[in-house]
Amino acid sequence: MKRIAPIDIAGGILVVAFLALLPMFAASNYLTGVLTVCVIYGIWASSWDFMSGLTGRENFGHSLFIGAGAYTAGFLSSIWSTNPWISLPLGVVIAIAFSLLVGFPTLRLRGPYFALAMLSASAILQRLCLIFWEYTGGEEGIYGLDPLMKTPLHYYWFVLAILVVTVIVLTLLAQSHWGLLLRAIRGDEATCQAAGINVTFYKIVSLMISAGFAGLGGALYAHYQLQVSPPLFSVVVSITVIIMVYVGGIGSIYGAAIAAILLTLLTEMLRGFGEYRLWIYTLTLMLILFFLPNGLIAPLWRRLTERLR
């Protein structure tokens, strides 16, 4: 069991305090909104990193869990008009159900089956939303979800708190014996078997945990946008999340969360560049990933704080 270094705790507190106070300095609902989306991406990215970053089994369809959580919230809050707070636990449950559906048959196999099954499952769900448009609202999606809180600022703080809990829980798990096994699975599954470890079980449970947090993030997103639509299931969302994790430093969890926040902010700031936006964004990512194959955030933080450990 690894101990979390005091410098990491201090750094974490500083970053969270900064994020919490940021909207106070420039009070605008626009900034608060952008930050809310940033933080939700942080939940998505760190939840991806927990399973795929630690076990090395890449999940190309994290949007399946995100969308499942979001649509659960959409159906519950808008169509069945339940109390919006029910969305969160049920979004988690439904996302976990999907993780079992895909993970159970494919995580026992070696090779690319799991990655491809995740990709296809998310694509299928996106199609199903269009096919069953009478229930899902088709392209338009579902409108009129109830907000969870009165003001955007309160909601931002709430979502930030959830991100903090997510990162703490996932980091503690990653540093525990459990996390050690997940990293061992990434290293060599045959050796794990020889060590008497049921690798399939650990992969499935870690996917369930990953899916649960992603579903929670999806439901939070739905209650921010007050609307859900099929692109939530899209491969673009999945790939964006994966890139965030790589920029953050794979397997670090906090790195994924911070990279998600920074990259989401970057996309927003590039809005001024109009059509060049995508070019600049893509180029930045390619440069980072090309020159820093281990990522930017976590390696940088480790380098900066080397002497303080």
Binding site: H177, L180, L181, R183, A184, G187, C192, G196
Partner: peptide, 28 residues
Amino acid sequence: ARTFQLTRPFVGMNLLENVLVACMSPRA
């Protein structure tokens, strides 16, 4: 239990962690 002819340690982990993985097996 077995050992491998071509040793297969968990790279990136220390000696203790390498053995710790097997200490997590149900039999232990």
